[in-house]
Design a protein around this nucleic acid. Structure first.
Lengths: 159, 159
DNA sequence: ACCGATTTGCTTGACAACATGAAACATCGA
DNA sequence: TCGATGTTTCATGTTGTCAAGCAAATCGGT
């Protein structure tokens, strides 16, 4: 089985597979870190978003790449735990802005700090190698590797 | 907000963020590719596993990093569509081996072929750079970067 | 400027997939 | 026989979709 060679060279194939492994590990550890704070992965991602700025529901949906109706539920759960609140948008009474509460910001910050796990696998690389890896990843991702416009591209290099 | 600088250098931090971007894009496109074949992400991952070899349920759970009781449902759904079948293990009558059917193997192969999206972002890199990236990722992931034994560790192109 | 029609933003409801944990059951191994 | 192991079932919760609904904004024609 798995006998037919794919129409791509083995090198590319291996890189793809390696990236797959990175993805699996990253995702897994992200979820574990979130769980340590009694959050699911989706809740942690949402809270991290709101740590930077408050956002209307539809914008959250766009960034998380899911339906707005889904965001309602996630915000509901976070709101019921006092980590997030809904505020009216003075400019448009239809929209509701989700914002992290004080407690939400604290949780988000603790979460981010505990996220240093991600740097641990990089410990084996020398700074020069890390720079190399950074450049290769940058070129791989192309220009706008983030999906949303960061408020200020200069600060908060971590997401 | 996000005032405390993380106890890691900016370079590492940026690499972490880049990896995060890779993870997001990879996941998203993986799910889309799966959806094109009427599969969910979890089903696609399971089917890809079984494309290499048939496995007992508990082993699938270990590789997918979830509970065995969860695997039951995913295999159920794939089985009801004729992509997977359960076979008894002659050596141990407790275990059930999940195996891809003929149709399952075909789907897995089509899926893998349509997965070339993942190689597309690599197109901008020269072969030498790809090799470099491969080596860096390998070292980053440590020895056993897959979670299962690779079919033939020897068939990786030598440097 | 007014009023109806359409669009937009969010929520609700029904439903499916995924995930966990506890409990049940058969089977293995000591 | 007894404990451990492999699988399933059940209850429950989160995430995701889609369709329908409501409120508010916007547009077009008079």
């Amino acid at each position: 089985m798995a006998s037919r060679p794919a129409p791509v060279d083995p090198l590319t194939l291996e890189v793809v597979e390696l990236i797959g492994s990175v993805v699996v590990r990253f995702h897994q550890e992200y979820d574990e870190a979130a769980a340590r704070h009694s959050l699911t992965g989706a809740q942690a991602r949402l809270l991290a978003l709101l740590h930077h700025q408050c956002l209307p529901m539809r914008e959250i949906a766009r960034r998380l790449k899911c339906e707005p109706s889904n965001v309602t539920g996630i915000v509901d759960r976070l709101e019921s735990r006092g980590l997030v609140e809904r505020r009216p948008d003075p400019a448009d009474r239809r929209v509701k802005l989700a914002a992290a509460t004080e407690s939400g910001h604290e949780t988000a910050e603790r979460l981010r700090a505990s996220m240093d796990f991600a740097s641990e696998p990089l410990a084996d690389l020398t700074p020069a190698e890390r720079a190399l890896l950074r450049d290769l990843l940058r070129r791989m991702l192309g220009d706008g590797y983030g999906d949303g416009p960061p408020a200020t591209p200069s600060d908060t290099p971590a997401d």
